[in-house]
Nucleic acid binder design. Structure first.
Lengths: 190, 190
DNA sequence: TTGTCTGGCGAACGTTCGTTCGCTATACTT
DNA sequence: AAGTATAGCGAACGAACGTTCGCCAGACAA
């Protein structure tokens, strides 16, 4: 059993238990029969940067739950080379969400934003805000209903523009209030 | 200081330290001066479902680092009601990535998949696989180059179809191998 | 006013923690 | 063959852990 294999088992424990295992638990996980073996294993993993220890000796993951490799570019137009070297790793949650308390997800219905790459069934990450810059995609309440559109300006007045030629821009007549700004889009294929 | 405020402090600790605080650390965080106060606080939070304890009394978060609220539907076509009631919360990482070790991200270049809602700059989540079902979006090596397209079949032979009328389908002549299946798409507006 | 309930306090308890020690077996070098 | 380094073992250690206890002050109801 290699150290790396054991490290994977430890991280699997972290993912399923939301905490790192104790040395006694690592004994169960790895099959080692003494805490000193675990102590030395942890020492090796820690020396090589695969784990950390806090001030009290308890172990911590170096990379966060949820990190994923970024491998490279894929040329969606003309085939190009995607090298098999990992460029970087990121945590999707941290990448997408800046302020967790003021952010929420909305599931998209309809196709009025399809030319912006937002289609039915997508999740959009909305961050609460009562104003936005021109050109941003906003969630807004207009004339009594909620909608998601590009925010545009004409003669100093805001209006909402869909990303689909089949729909017309919305010029608020009665009321208009921005509720949130769309910060990201997430789609999952099942 | 309300219990909920203290719970937020505890979860903030978890987010920044990748582990839950000990009772002594909760004393520092909250300003409480006895471990029994913490013990009772934890008891209340646990009773109300805001925390869990494991077998040994150590506390765990009920909701994972990175969970975010799903608020409702947004009708992208015609404005409809998006109620302000939180329907559910999910962790984006877990939502998007099934098998972390065989998954990676690729940044999209080009516009050949724009009608599928995948545009330049998007990150796609690719899961390594050497075969796929018809209709899935795949990363494939064809005639010496890499590309991302819909997998289609004609007369038992696979070919690749873009989601953009400006591009032509690719019929492999020399070599063809599926490298990965696209499981999700992530876009961030900056 | 009196009784009851709750949250917080300081002190003490037994358990589990990470760590260290002496030892053995194996692998590799000289 | 002899010497060195490494991984693993069982046992023991002090420190930190969650828990429990008796007590007190404030809030609220009877």
């Amino acid at each position: 059993m290699t150290d790396i294999t054991n490290r994977r088992k430890i991280l699997d424990f972290y993912r399923s238990h939301y905490r790192m295992p104790s040395y006694a638990e690592i004994m169960d996980i790895t099959g080692l029969r003494s805490k000193d073996s675990v102590f030395k294993l942890v020492g090796r993993l820690s020396r090589d940067g695969y784990l950390r220890k806090d001030r009290r000796g308890r172990i911590l993951p170096t990379s966060v739950l949820g990190e994923i490799k970024i491998l490279g570019l894929v040329e969606a137009g003309i085939p190009s080379v995607a090298e098999e070297e990992s460029i970087d790793t990121i945590a999707l949650d941290e990448y997408l969400i800046k302020d967790r308390d003021s952010s929420y997800l909305l599931r998209v219905k309809g196709d009025s934003m399809k030319d912006a790459g937002i289609v039915e069934g997508d999740l959009v990450i909305a961050e609460r805000a009562d104003n936005a810059k021109e050109g941003e995609i906003v969630i807004a309440e207009v004339d009594g209903g909620w909608t998601m559109k590009y925010l545009r300006m004409k003669k100093g007045q805001p209006y909402l523009e869909p990303a689909n030629e089949a729909y017309e821009p919305i010029y608020p007549t009665d009321s208009f209030a921005i509720s949130a700004v769309v910060r990201g889009v997430v789609r999952k294929y099942t």
